[in-house]
Design a protein around this nucleic acid. Structure first.
Lengths: 150, 150
DNA sequence: CCATATTGGTAGCATGTTGCAACCGCGATG
DNA sequence: CATCGCGGTTGCAACATGCTACCAATATGG
């Protein structure tokens, strides 16, 4: 399944992304990586996922260039999994999912983990989809331009 | 499985979002909905997904408030699936995935479907993660504030 | 050094989920 | 009033997942 493509991702970047990430566990692994997890055991304890699944997902993410396996930073002989630039580029995806979750699945005042600006300690500004010239766009303000239409 | 939560989503909005969407097929259904698909058959042809899976996913998305099942707009007796406000709020998620895919999985010049501003016909501006006061933030500029830390 | 705990996995098996193909009722169409 | 397309449902085979047990290599304590 590793290099297998499950979706008809011929020309849609969304489908290719989805296929590259692999599954939901992988996305939560990436989330944890953004939150500072690096070691196999950290991911395993944080996610509660079965170890064989975690093994497979970590391998797939490394193979896909999202994570890299590097020698442990603490000098031990173990290895760590860190985000590559490609992995770090998933930041807006995670932030978008986080904000959607915050807005739709928590009662007002219900506590939840929060992603804050390290410098000011403030929560982030909601993501905005902007046109090339900076106008704020809603879904209806956009259209998909198929390559074959050109 | 419909109302079952698979992940320990106690307080992480990302996990709740992931759980609410359900699986990758669901996300591609949402993508197609943004692209204008409304009918069962449209989704089925576009995605190539098995019909029983599509049935289950559509039901779950309706149950989760992402889609709504409404009478067909063309006057026929069939029903259509349209995005609710909650579903439309997934727009930044789809855009983020799309942009990540465009940047990482297409060779320069390789054709792919493109999401453009309807008014100008131009591709969108890349999403930016901003602090409350408008500074551009990288992953390292942020930190997760656990509720229990407060 | 030696005993023991921890880390980072594998292996095997039961179970759950998916994909596929066949079927089917209802509404539309001629 | 025969037939087609739409929107499913059903049954089954294949595959993926989760669980538990196990294990080698590394760290740790005395």
């Amino acid at each position: 399944m590793v290099a297998r493509t499950r979706f008809d991702d011929s020309e849609c970047p969304v489908a290719r992304s989805v296929d590259a990430i692999g599954d939901w566990w992988s996305l939560l692994i990436v989330r944890d990586a953004f939150d500072g997890s690096r070691r196999f055991g950290e991911f395993q304890r944080s996610l509660g996922v079965a170890k064989n699944i975690l093994t497979a997902r970590l391998r797939a993410l490394v193979a896909g260039g999202v994570l890299a396996s590097v020698p442990a930073s603490d000098g031990s002989a173990y290895r760590e999994y860190v985000l590559t630039p490609k992995g770090k580029a998933l930041f807006p995806v995670i932030v978008a999912l986080r904000q959607w979750g915050e807005q739709n699945f928590f009662a007002p005042g219900e506590p939840h983990s929060q992603l804050v600006d390290r410098e000011q300690g403030q929560p982030l500004r909601p993501l905005e989809v902007l046109s090339a010239d900076g106008r704020r766009l809603n879904p209806d303000d956009t259209t998909v331009h198929k390559t074959s239409d050109q």
